[in-house]
Amino acid sequence: MSLTVGSKLINTGRFEYHLLTRKQKGNRAKKVLLVALMLTSLVDMFSMLVCFLLQTFSTTPEIYVANDVKLPEALSGGVVKEAPVLSVTKTALFLDQKEIGSMAKILKSPEPLLKGLEGFKQKWAKENPGKPYPGEINLQADKEMPSTDVAKLMGILNTQQYDVIQLAVLGAQ
């Protein structure tokens, strides 16, 4: 259906046409202000947005990355696995988002870290009785940190049977 408003010929739906013509009948002298939402372009936009978001949708587990951590980049990164997360920033260490102290402090006396790691092991043993502990941990370290400090931290993790260390990197999966 089409309707002439001023000098323009506008395509309208049946309901819009009814509303507009009814108003015109009542006030023939007054100009009609036509406010019609263009649904076609809206639907187009939504469809494109849905297609884009569906393409970028990921079902792999995501890990929390601390704001202060600038991760290094790598091309050979794999899929992130679910495991406890140890974040190393320039100022502090976080074990599953709980601050456990500064890097210097932990390297001198790693008791808070060892206690936290032991807690994860005990929790695993309760939830999976009889199964060996997989010893996986996600390590997020800031790219500006000295590599020797990170290596020493890995040594500490190693003493607690955390043998599979997954270094978090920014990558092109």
Partner: peptide, 23 residues
Amino acid sequence: LVCFLLISAVWVTVASMDLKQSH
């Protein structure tokens, strides 16, 4: 659908690099 996908979208791709620390 757009709201759900926007909320669950991953904007930063975090990958992992496995290191085998022998002990």
